[in-house]
């Protein structure tokens, strides 16, 4: 039987790939936003509002937030499994983190689509 990388437990590969792709997305978004801030020195509320009113910006921000959430989940899961040896404590921390990330996601949605 030929085993394929994707045929068995390949969570490590998937996590590793998500970590890299999400990092690139966050980098592009951050650099883009930073460039925008530099090009608009006297930024006022109206301009800032207009920026986030566009569908493109909303989608880009949503993509950034999703990347951030996945990135932090994988990163924190790694830290927990490295350093927290008690199963119960690790479980509590992971559930707490997961719930927080879900809340952050809906809060971000609410803020973005409230503009």
């Amino acid at each position: 039987m030929v085993k394929s990388v994707l045929g068995v437990n390949h969570q490590g590969l998937t996590d590793w790939l998500i970590q890299r792709v999400s990092a690139v997305i966050m980098m592009l978004y951050s650099v883009g936003l930073f460039a925008y801030l530099i090009m608009h020195p006297g930024l006022d509320y109206a301009e800032w509002h207009a920026l986030f009113s566009s569908k493109c910006m909303k989608l880009a921000t949503l993509l950034f937030i999703l990347s951030l959430l996945f990135h932090s989940w994988i990163g924190m899961w790694t830290v927990f499994t490295d350093y927290i040896k008690s199963f119960l404590l690790r479980l509590v921390l992971q559930v707490f983190l997961l719930l927080s990330l879900i809340v952050f996601f809906f809060a971000a949605l609410w803020i973005l689509w409230g503009v």
Partner: peptide
């Protein structure tokens, strides 16, 4: 080669 790679694809063996 494929089997060897598949054996290392979990989150710990290689990716730690």
């Amino acid at each position: 080669k494929s089997e060897r790679l598949a054996d290392l694809a979990d989150p710990f063996s290689l990716f730690r």
